[in-house]
Amino acid sequence: MTDIRIAGRRRATLLLMGTLALASLPGPSAAQQLTVSREQDITELRLGQKIFVDDGSCPTGQILEVVGATLTSEGLARTRKCVPRVRR
């Protein structure tokens, strides 16, 4: 009976350690954001991906955010908006 309890505790400990290890990995939001100087420099944009364009078209303290928004029959539609510049 005690062997079963020890095996169960080991399994629970390993499961907990694995869960904590996965939780400590950086997620997509923690990934480094790409900044380019011209929108023409964006060669590939994936659905949901955000790329910042520092071309001076937005007011002071803001930067242009280009997002791969939706799939259309012509390809990926982009949305553009000025967002507050975040220090990285």
Rank of each mutant, 00 (worst) to 15 (best):
A12G: 02
A31H: 12
P26R: 07
R11M: 10
P84F: 13
T19H: 05
G61I: 08
A21P: 00
G27H: 01
S73N: 08
A31P: 00
G61R: 14
P28C: 04
L20M: 12
K81G: 06
I51E: 01
S29T: 02
T43G: 11
I42G: 00
R88M: 07
P26S: 14
G48D: 08
D41G: 03
P59I: 06
T70N: 11
C58N: 10
S24T: 06
R78I: 03
L71M: 10
M1Q: 07
Q49L: 04
P84M: 15
D41T: 01
G48Q: 09
R5E: 05
G75M: 09
Q40L: 14
A7E: 04
L47I: 12
S29K: 07
V66R: 02
T2S: 06
R38H: 14
L22F: 15
R80E: 08
L76S: 05
T35V: 15
G68P: 02
G75S: 10
A23N: 04
K50Q: 12
E74M: 05
L64R: 11
L25I: 12
P28A: 07
F52R: 02
I42S: 02
P59W: 08
C58D: 08
R88V: 06
T70G: 01
L14C: 11
T19R: 13
G75F: 12
